[in-house]
Simulated scan of single mutants.
Amino acid sequence: MLHSRVLRYIDEVARSGSIRAAGERLNVAASAINKHVLQLEEMIDEPLFERLPRGLRLTPAGEIFSSRMCAGRSRNTARSRPRSATSRRFRAAR
């Protein structure tokens, strides 16, 4: 089963072109992101990223996966994202 966390990792690696940069942006260890990417690639039996000397690039399969799974995730999380405690307090103070 895919968790939204793994989809977020895939999306950020695709955007940044680097597992290390994605880890810095998400405040997650690069090794954890790499582990999840490798597990997903093994699960679907298809590489999602082409490993290059200067980073990663989506493969054609990765582009399809990213456009379908990650785009759907961003639409769903925008609607279902819980409000932060700060925004609830701000609304209550009005």
Rank of each mutant, 00 (worst) to 15 (best):
M1K: 02
M1N: 10
L2P: 13
L2T: 15
L2G: 09
H3Q: 14
S4L: 10
R5V: 15
V6E: 10
L7F: 07
I10C: 00
E12Q: 10
E12K: 10
E12P: 11
V13C: 01
A14S: 08
R15D: 14
R15S: 11
S16W: 08
S16A: 08
G17F: 05
I19S: 00
A21R: 09
A22Y: 09
G23P: 03
E24K: 03
L26F: 05
L26V: 10
N27W: 12
N27G: 10
V28M: 00
V28P: 05
A29Y: 08
A30H: 12
S31L: 03
S31I: 13
I33Q: 03
I33D: 07
I33L: 02
I33F: 08
N34W: 07
K35W: 09
V37E: 05
L38S: 08
L40A: 05
E41Y: 02
E41W: 03
E42V: 04
M43N: 06
I44Q: 01
D45K: 04
D45G: 04
P47L: 00
P47W: 08
P47G: 03
F49L: 00
F49W: 01
F49I: 05
F49V: 04
E50V: 15
L52H: 07
P53Q: 01
L56V: 11
R57W: 09
L58C: 00
T59V: 04
T59H: 02
P60Q: 02
P60Y: 06
A61R: 05
S66Q: 05
S66P: 03
R68P: 12
M69S: 04
G72E: 09
G72Q: 05
S74A: 06
S74N: 12
N76F: 15
N76I: 15
N76T: 15
N76Y: 14
T77S: 02
R79K: 11
P82L: 03
P82R: 04
S84G: 08
A85Y: 14
A85N: 11
A85V: 14
S87I: 15
R88G: 05
R88V: 15
R91W: 15
A93R: 08
R94M: 09
